[in-house]
Write a protein that binds this DNA or RNA. Structure first.
Lengths: 233, 233
DNA sequence: AGGAATTTGTGCGTATGTATC
DNA sequence: AGATACATACGCACAAATTCC
C-alpha cells in the first residue's frame, strides 16, 4: 500500500503555464524561452517539458514553430470553442457584437442540467448581433460560486475571455443540444424570427479543464439571419 | 536543393496500421501485440512506436489501456465523427437503424458546395430511426468518382464503415450547418414532424484524410422525437 | 546570397512507476 | 503475489526549419 502520488510532472508544468498565462505573465503571442533552457530552469528533462507543451498545443493554448519557438495563444483559445460551434450569417461570417439585456443572480431552475456546486447562479441575458443584425438571443447561467460579483462592464464583449482572465476558468469542453423552441417572452422587439413563434435553439453545457460543468446557456437563433455551424477535424 | 525525404517513421507506422485495419487484418476491438514486441518486429524504438500509437489514439482509431494493451477501434472511428455530431432521442440515446428509401446516380445540383471531382454523384435517401421511431430523413450525396458502383446491400447499416472498407475512404473532418427548413416532398408518410411543415435541418460536408470534400448530406430531424448534439473537447 | 547559430522535430535506449491480468 | 503491459521520465544524437549576421 502506498500513498497516492502527485500528478505527473508534465501535467504540473502545463497547469503552471496555464496559470501564468491566466495571471497575465504571458501576453498573446508571447514566445516561451527555448525548450532546453526552460527544462533546465524547471529541473526536468526536455522530453518531459515537450510532453507538457505538446499537450497545450493540442488544447490550442500554444503554437509550436520549428526553428523559431513556442508561442502562447490566448485570444485563440477563445476561438477553440468558437471554431467548433459558431453562429454566422447565412451569407457567411459577420462581425459579432453583444448587447447586455439583463444581469442578475437567482436560484438555478431545477430542470437544468447540473453545473457548478452553488444553489444560485448568475443569469446573463444578451442580444448578439452579426454585422449589426440581431441574430442570437442568449441566456447564460454561470455558477454563483465562480465569482463573488459580476458587473455589467465585465461582460462587454468576450465572455470566455472574462472567464479566463477574471475567474481563472478555461472552458475546454462543451456540448450543444439543438432543437426547435419557442422564443422566450423576454425577447426584445428587435429580435424577431418569423418561422411562426419557433426558432432554432442551442443549449450549451460548458466544462472547465477539470471536466466539471460550470456554465449552461440557451441560444435562440434567428434562422432568417444566421445559421449554426459545427465543425470537427 | 535536395530530394524530398520520406515521411517520418511514426507517420509511416500509423498509416500502415490504418491500411491494415482498412484491409480487415484487424477486427474491431482487436488487441495489438505488446509495444516492445511490435517495436522489435518493426525495427523501431518503443518511443517511436508509441508516438504512432498516440497519434492514432487522438484520431480515435485506437484505445490504450494501461496494463492491458492497445485496442483497435473500427466501428468506433465511425463514432469519432458521430461522437461529435449525433442525433439522439430527446430522452437520450436510442438504437439507430436505417432504411434505404432510394439509391440513384445523377448530376450534382449546382447550388451544393463542391465535393469530389465528378460531375455526377450517388444520391442515397434513407430514413433513420432511433429505437424504431422515425427520427431523421437523410439524403447523402457521394461523389461518383469514389466508386464504380454502389449496391443497396452495401448501405445496410453504417455508411462510414462502407466508405472505409469498400472505398478505402476515411472521413476525418466534417462541418454541419443547421437551419430550419421545410421537409422535402419525397418524405415518406411515416416521417412527420409537426412544427408546421418546418423541421431542423443539418447539412454536412465531409472530408477525407487529404482534406478533400467527398460527401455532402442533408439531414432533416424530427425535433419532436430527437435532438441534434454537438460536442467538443 | 550565404553560412553560422539557434530552435524545434524525430528517433533511440534505458530505468522506474502503475494498472491490469 | 507475480508477471505482463502501458505510463512517465531521463539523456543523447542528429535532422529540419528558422533566424540572424
Amino acid at each position: 500500500m502506498s500513498i497516492k502520488n502527485a500528478l505527473p510532472v508534465y501535467v504540473q508544468i502545463s497547469e503552471m503555464l496555464i496559470r501564468d498565462v491566466s495571471a497575465g505573465h504571458y501576453l498573446d503571442g508571447a514566445r516561451l524561452p527555448p525548450e532546453r533552457q526552460m527544462a533546465k530552469e524547471l529541473g526536468v528533462s526536455v522530453t518531459t517539458l515537450r510532453k507538457a507543451l505538446n499537450d497545450m498545443t493540442h488544447k490550442g493554448m500554444l503554437e509550436k514553430r520549428q526553428g523559431s519557438g513556442n508561442y502562447i495563444k490566448t485570444n485563440k483559445n477563445l476561438a477553440s470553442v468558437y471554431s467548433f460551434f459558431r453562429v454566422e450569417l447565412i451569407a457567411g461570417g459577420g462581425l459579432p457584437t453583444a448587447e447586455l439585456l439583463a444581469l442578475d443572480r437567482t436560484v438555478k431552475p431545477t430542470h437544468f442540467p447540473a453545473f457548478g456546486k452553488g444553489n444560485e447562479a448568475y443569469r446573463i441575458r444578451r442580444l448578439r448581433r452579426l454585422n449589426g443584425q440581431p441574430a442570437v438571443l442568449e441566456e447564460i447561467w454561470l455558477d454563483g460560486n465562480q465569482s463573488a460579483q459580476i458587473r455589467p462592464a465585465d461582460l462587454s464583449e468576450s465572455l470566455y475571455l472574462f472567464y479566463r482572465k477574471s475567474l481563472n476558468l478555461w472552458i475546454t469542453e462543451a456540448e450543444d443540444q439543438l432543437t426547435i423552441a419557442t422564443v422566450p417572452e423576454w425577447s426584445p422587439a428587435t429580435f424577431d424570427p418569423t418561422h411562426g413563434e419557433h426558432c432554432l435553439c442551442a443549449q450549451r453545457l460548458s466544462r472547465s479543464q477539470s471536466g466539471a460543468a460550470v456554465e449552461f446557456s440557451l441560444n435562440w437563433i434567428d434562422t432568417n439571419v444566421a445559421r449554426y455551424v459545427a465543425r470537427i477535424k
